[in-house]
């Protein structure tokens, strides 16, 4: 094997490990969202509308996350308020 080949093989090494890393993340995400209820997007939209009645938040300020394991279901709600609102103290 020439020096160039060695260099090349060194550079190529690693796409399989990249594939594995990407898959682990992807599959974990797929599994977490797999059985999520179909009302989730609507729920998210309506919560956003309610919040926007009171606070001038971004259209993507609300995120709803659903996770399930053997024993429980977790509905996680995350609302990002604009900085100004928090300092004014409502």
């Amino acid at each position: 094997m020439g020096l160039l080949d060695l260099f090349r093989s060194h550079r190529q090494r690693g796409t399989a490990s990249i594939a594995k890393e990407r898959l682990q993340i992807l599959v974990a995400h797929d599994r977490a969202t797999r059985n999520q209820p179909s009302y989730l997007p609507r729920l998210q939209q309506e919560i956003l509308e309610v919040i926007r009645k009171y606070v001038d938040v971004d259209m993507n300020a609300v995120s709803v996350n659903y996770e399930q394991d053997e024993t429980r279901e977790v509905l996680e709600l995350n609302i990002v308020l604009p900085e100004a609102t928090t300092t004014k103290g409502g």
């Binding site: 093989s9 190529q12 090494r13 796409t15 399989a16 490990s17 594939a19 594995k20 898959l23």
Partner: peptide
């Protein structure tokens, strides 16, 4: 050569 996922992966 590290180009393909292994069976263990």
């Amino acid at each position: 050569k590290g180009e393909m996922l292994s069976v263990n992966d």
